[in-house]
Design a protein around this nucleic acid. Sequence first.
RNA 1: GGCCCGUUCGUCUAGUGGUUAGGACACUGGGUUCUCAGUCCAGUAACAGGGGUUCGACUCCCCUACGGGCUACCA
Length: 474
Amino acid sequence: MNTRLRYAPSPTGLQHLGGIRTALFCFLLAKSANGTFILRIEDTDRTRLHPDAIDDLYDVLRWLNITWDEGPDKGGDYGPYIQSDRLDIYHTHVQTLLKRGVAYKSEEERVQEGKSVKGTVIRLKIPTEGSITMTDGIVGDLTFQYDAIPSNPVLIKSDGFPTYHFASVVDDHLMHISHVIRSQEWLSSLPIHWHMYEAFGWKLPQFFHLPLIVGSDGKKLSKRYGSMAASSFRSEGVLPNAIWNFLSLLGWSYDDTSNFFSPEKLLEVFSFQGLNKSQAMYDELKLFSLNGEHIRTLNITEFIEYCEKALGIVLEKGSVLRLRLESIAVELQARCNRFSDVAYHWEYIGYSIADDGGKRFSGLSVCDGLEADILTAMIHIIKEHSELFAGSYENSVTFDEMNHDSQEKSDAIVNLMKAAANELQTKPKTFFMCVQETITGRKKSLPVAHVMIALKKEETIQRLRNRMNNETII
RNA sequence: GGCCCGUUCGUCUAGUGGUUAGGACACUGGGUUCUCAGUCCAGUAACAGGGGUUCGACUCCCCUACGGGCUACCA
């Protein structure tokens, strides 16, 4: 039997971590078994449709490289893949249940928006006594008493649309779904679904109910209660690979020591065996840490691309800012766990005195005598060794070459700075910090010599002078 | 309230009757270092509680507690 798994979200809100975890697991499980991954949209609740939900779903899945073999936009042998296009299918199938006396029509009145409304629904008849025994691939064997099911569930609503219970069972059967992977919130509905399969006389798929992911408040992540939108991770500069890695470890494990997984590795080793059953709390720090690890596996070209995406900018090849970024990329990559880290450093790398006449640095403290001496000494170094500040990248063919060159120049500059500090009878640290703060406006920055190389002579001197002028003005 | 699922370091987890209870994130200390990172090394830290079963329980059973889910013409 072919392995066919589906992710079947309802377009009632933005995709969140819990949803894409399910999507990822389905995808991984399908692919590792050489099977088929199907996307189906369950838009049966007409009152809660969210206008951006479907676009968001496509965007997020594509961003994450979770690709489906069959789906609304792709077609397939068992379409359509949007439930609102399958209404006639549900209506013919519910006839079967009606004929068999397993379902019945019911005229009902209910209160809607303060008014009482009449309508006809079709309900499934649940036995009044006895029990049903089922098997779940994660939870194990389960027995429910029929009388624990609170009421006969609605199959077809009065607006003619099926409920989730009915539509998903019919579709899973018709689409030959072999394994139903969904989150554990569905566990208490399993008897309803199981009973329906039996009433139809259909072969049951294998069920796997994934443990819930909970937020730091301990409550389940939900579209309805907001936050954790998958798209927000994208804008925060989290890599798809990091999301794969992070999510895969929420409810699944490989062995006693592995924590880092590339997508290739996951595709290779992910399996039903490693699934576990207890709920997991989302830990942002771990995601960011993993993201840092994945950032560090990027080659330098990819990393620069990542920076551009994260910053939402495009730097033309050969442009001043592009050259600066290239020059500093290796140093930058070593200390980034997420977008905000890139942005933090880009504020002084991607800025030029010419942009605003140096206003950004006007908040720096006034130079006292020593600081003025240090800056003067630094300017002297630059003027006397201008070749070191000419930019390392101009004549380099490869990044390796460039980095090597950059490192050599940096070492030379550091030595000159140490010597100058010595001459001023001050600690190297004082000297470096003064220069760094003047150049970057920050107490924490990339190594200042590298920054100066990236900025090149002119901009560096301007920043140094700018600080000194501030003093004279004040 | 009822029904269901779960419970190993703060967090994610390994563990299927005999282990110094392992790894990772976080945290702490140290090496490297012009700051911050990164990197390397080290360290603190857990079997919810109580009963059984057993020569022996983190592992099996029961009870309690706690957490979560469901209890809609929502999914």
